[in-house]
């Protein structure tokens, strides 16, 4: 296969993995105003739990289904016990809190699984390569593309077309009015936070065969996810999607064609976009 096409597909894979992380991050920010620095930790925790599930059950699919559950429970506990008490305070307090939590998670993971780099093996049914556009492309990567696009579509439908989505949007636009008209905003916040975390945990499992599973992967994925939502505009699902693909593809092409400068490429992209549009591509000016 043409190098260009295969890199494009790899970029798409990385971009969609980023989207699984960035979408939750962006919605949580939009709704709660929390920059969740523990979001990468949810990803990492999901990956490690997935690793254990695979070693017990031998099935990647069980890992994909089960790993997000404890992650969501942990996230719900964090929201109820800690974050909830900080909504009325300075936003920075919440960032500091999640920062502290990310340390706790790192220690927890190193305690439970050690400091080694593990590799999650891809499901046996997707081990082969498919002939695709005149070349060979690993089935697993194609599956990620399909999975990522499906999640994006489902999230979009959920947010734009359902009652729950309408509540989330109402919460993002104006939390106090949403409460005033009788929405159960506290429940909405807990649910959103936990769902975002579950999505991140699931992303950890999906990315396991590609990025590896190790303590430190949290920061490794959190930073590009941040860049994605800074570029896309915070609180915007569409922004998270476009930003993810942009960063995923730019990063992959950078690594393939200019390995020396690749590190700077996504930062350069971010800087250019921020200078032109300080609120990101799809963000709204802060009210």
């Amino acid at each position: 296969m043409d190098l260009f096409v295969s890199q494009l597909l790899n970029g798409l894979v990385y971009g969609l993995l980023l989207f699984l992380l960035a979408s939750g991050l962006s919605l949580i920010f939009g709704l709660m105003g929390v920059v969740n620095l523990a979001h990468g930790s949810f990803f990492m925790l999901g990956a490690f739990i997935g690793l254990s599930v695979v070693s017990y059950t031998g099935s990647f699919w069980w890992a994909l289904v089960l790993a997000p559950i404890p992650v969501a429970i942990a996230a719900a506990a964090i929201e109820i016990l800690l974050l909830r008490h900080l909504y009325k305070r300075d936003k920075v307090d919440m960032v500091l809190l999640t920062f502290g939590l990310s340390f706790v998670f790192t220690d927890l993971v190193e305690w439970g699984w050690g400091k080694d780099t593990f590799s999650l093996s891809e499901p046996a049914s997707l081990e082969e390569s498919l002939e695709f556009l005149g070349g060979y492309f690993p089935q697993y990567r194609l599956a990620i593309v399909v999975f990522g696009l499906a999640v994006a579509l489902l999230l979009w439908l959920l947010i734009e077309k359902t009652r729950i989505g309408a509540m989330v949007r109402a919460g993002i636009d104006d939390t106090r009015t949403a409460m005033g008209i009788g929405l159960n905003v506290p429940l909405l916040l807990t649910t959103t936070f936990a769902s975002g975390a579950a999505l991140a945990g699931m992303a950890g499992v999906v990315a396991g065969p590609i990025l590896g599973v190790y303590s430190g992967v949290d920061v490794e994925v959190l930073i590009p996810a941040f860049i994605v939502i800074v570029i896309g505009g915070m609180g915007s699902l569409k922004g998270a999607f476009v930003g993810s693909l942009l960063i995923g593809i730019a990063d992959t092409f950078g690594k393939a064609y200019m390995p020396e400068a690749s590190m700077f490429l996504i930062y350069a992209a971010m800087i250019v976009i921020l200078l032109a549009r300080p609120h990101g591509l799809f963000g709204q000016a802060a009210s």
Binding site: L86, L97, G100, L101, F103, F105, T106, D107, E110
Partner: peptide, 20 residues
Amino acid sequence: TEHWLAIVGIIFVCCVMFFR
């Protein structure tokens, strides 16, 4: 203890919550 990082994190959380 080896769990220095967790202790740091917990102190961080407590400072933000109760000891601003």
